[in-house]
Amino acid sequence: MQVAQRSGVLITQGLPVFEEVAGHHEPAPFFVTPETVPGAPFSIAVVDAARLLGAPHADLHVHDDHDEIYLVATPGLRFAVETEDDMIELESPASISIPAGVKHRLICHEVQTDTCPFLGILLEKGTLPV
């Protein structure tokens, strides 16, 4: 990864940066972190939901120190967000806010496009209203 500043613009290349995330089956591809954008108070992982069809991308897991937002802007994804108490069936475009301490996971059922970028945005705990 290379971070440089030029003409007043911060440029980061060599992305994504793969990081282990508790409960996930494989390292998550992060495009924004406090290291890739020095000082950023959040991180953004981007996965292709079209590659996650049929099986959960993670076990039920919890982020004790981070709130999370799932964001799918591309229309045509049918998916579920599972918590300990519920299975929430959704269709994109959609965003889901998950406060720190809530066990969750994503399950993609169907996608109508060849690719479907899905953002997982980790924020400092307490950023989201409860």
Rank of each mutant, 00 (worst) to 15 (best):
E84P: 03
V47W: 00
P129M: 13
A50C: 02
I96L: 03
I121A: 11
L53S: 03
I98W: 08
R6T: 15
G120Y: 10
M1L: 04
I98Q: 06
V72E: 15
A80G: 13
F42Q: 08
P34R: 01
E89H: 11
H104V: 00
D59N: 10
L77Q: 07
L123Y: 07
I98N: 05
L60S: 04
K125E: 15
G101P: 05
T12A: 15
T83Q: 00
D64G: 08
I121L: 09
S97L: 02
L119Y: 12
T83W: 00
L60M: 04
R105W: 09
K125A: 12
F31Q: 08
D48T: 12
P27K: 04
L53P: 12
E19N: 06
L122M: 08
G8H: 11
H57P: 06
H104G: 01
E84I: 04
S97R: 04
E20R: 13
G120N: 06
V3P: 09
L53F: 10
S97W: 05
L77R: 01
I96P: 14
D114I: 01
G54C: 04
A22S: 14
L119R: 11
K103I: 05
C108E: 15
T36F: 01
P41S: 11
A4E: 15
P29F: 00
F18R: 09
M1C: 12
H109P: 02
L119S: 11
S7I: 02
T127C: 08
A80S: 15
T113A: 14
V72M: 12
V62N: 12
I69N: 09
L123D: 15
M87V: 13
Q5I: 05
P38Y: 00
P93T: 04
T12S: 15
D59I: 03
D48R: 09
Q5A: 13
H25I: 05
D114S: 01
H109Y: 08
V111C: 12
P27A: 02
D67E: 05
S95W: 14
P56Q: 03
V102R: 15
E35L: 08
E91R: 07
L90P: 08
L52K: 10
